[in-house]
Simulated scan of single mutants.
Amino acid sequence: MAVKNYYEILGVSKSATKDEIKRAYRRLAKEWHPDVNPDPRAEEQFKLINEAYHVLSDDEKRAQYDRILESGDERKYRDFMEYIQEFLQEVWKGIRRKPGPRKGEDIRLRLELSLEEAAFGCEKSIEYERWVDCPQCEGKGYLGESIEKETCHACEGTGRRVSGIFDFPRPCSVCRGRGYLIKNSCSLCAGRGRVARLSTVKVSIPPGTDEGDVLKVKGFGHTGERGGEPGDLYLRVVLKPHPVFRKIGKDLHREVFISFPLAVLGGVVKVKTLSGEELEVFLQPGVECGSTKTIPGMGFPSSGSAGNLVLTFRIEVPKDPSGKIKKLLMKLAKELGEKGVDTEPHLMEKIRRAIQSVL
């Protein structure tokens, strides 16, 4: 994060007095106010002018900023900006910010789907943890009709403290920047007004949902604070590995095992699609191991055209053929002139038979 030069933004020198900074601010604020300036950049420029004035008009903030500007330390400037963001809204409104409704945070989760669920759609029940209004204090953070306050001992009521390695004040972690502690705070939520609870929501998965898609469930994020609207739930889709099909883009790939006679002579093989439909696929004579056949439109469905089903054929070799099959294979090997095939019983088999005859 590059360090902004607030002096250049207001058009004053580094040695400018408070009065000079104030006059420059008033002039620029009047020029760039969005209500009077039609320029599309006016709102952002007006905010930037307010940001610069907010820092340079405060002796403490200006001193800290000058040290950062001189050193060019972007890390310290990033942390300084986090501190500034806590108070910029005060400058924008012209008054110290009062606690009001605050929208709840969004929740982002992974949603694992099978290939069938993603392809044809389904309804999933999602269980997750989120912040909800405290049932004991009804989201107020305190018990009773009204709040009872006492000055925060850590920040002495300022809402800010110097802590850690940074030498500029940050929101007080004890009172959360409020400047006071709640004497009658709720014991269940510790004054937060919210508690973590398991929630369940049913989500409709549309057909053709793909890997990486993000489904938004409005209003099912964390509950807002002080009556604010809830955040949203975002589900990023992850597809589970399939035991049969392999998805590449919109295409579905699968292996089909066929017998040696079918590969040689050709014929028909039955193949199941992802939907469970059984297709009869015609094979030309002489199918080689590893050859493929593409069936258009039978792959993964999508909002446009569906992908293809790509079949890769493998020759199935019997692991323990029967005696009858062995004889037929030997006869075939002899017919083809195959010299490497052992047409006689194996030597170990001869030894086993000899031992059995003696016993």
Rank of each mutant, 00 (worst) to 15 (best):
Q89P: 01
W92Q: 13
W92H: 13
W92N: 07
W92A: 14
K93A: 12
K93D: 13
K93G: 13
G94D: 07
G94W: 09
G94S: 10
G94R: 09
I95N: 13
I95G: 04
I95Q: 14
R96S: 11
R96K: 15
R97K: 12
R97H: 10
K98H: 08
K98I: 11
P99G: 12
G100N: 07
G100A: 14
P101H: 02
P101V: 02
P101F: 05
P101S: 08
R102H: 07
R102C: 02
K103L: 04
K103M: 08
G104Y: 02
G104S: 01
G104F: 00
E105F: 01
D106E: 08
D106T: 05
D106H: 14
I107R: 04
I107F: 03
R108K: 13
R108E: 13
R108T: 10
R108Q: 10
R108M: 06
L109I: 11
L109S: 10
R110N: 15
R110G: 10
L111M: 14
L111E: 08
E112T: 12
E112A: 12
L113V: 04
S114P: 08
S114G: 15
S114A: 09
S114F: 07
S114Y: 09
S114N: 11
L115K: 03
E116V: 10
E117G: 06
E117I: 03
E117M: 06
E117Q: 15
E117A: 09
E117C: 05
A118K: 01
A118V: 05
A118D: 09
A119W: 00
A119F: 04
F120E: 01
G121R: 00
G121H: 04
C122A: 14
C122I: 01
C122P: 00
C122Q: 04
C122V: 04
C122M: 07
E123W: 06
E123H: 09
E123V: 14
K124W: 01
K124C: 01
K124M: 01
S125E: 15
S125D: 11
S125L: 12
S125Y: 05
S125T: 15
S125W: 06
I126S: 06
E127W: 09
Y128P: 04
Y128G: 04
E129L: 03
E129T: 14
R130M: 03
W131T: 00
W131L: 15
V132Q: 11
V132L: 08
D133W: 06
D133H: 09
D133Q: 13
C134A: 08
P135W: 06
P135K: 05
P135M: 06
Q136L: 10
Q136Y: 08
C137P: 03
C137T: 02
E138Y: 13
E138Q: 14
E138A: 11
G139D: 01
G139V: 04
G139Y: 02
K140T: 13
K140I: 06
G141T: 10
Y142R: 06
L143G: 02
L143W: 01
L143F: 03
G144K: 06
E145P: 03
E145K: 14
E145S: 14
E145A: 13
S146K: 15
S146I: 06
S146D: 12
S146A: 13
I147R: 15
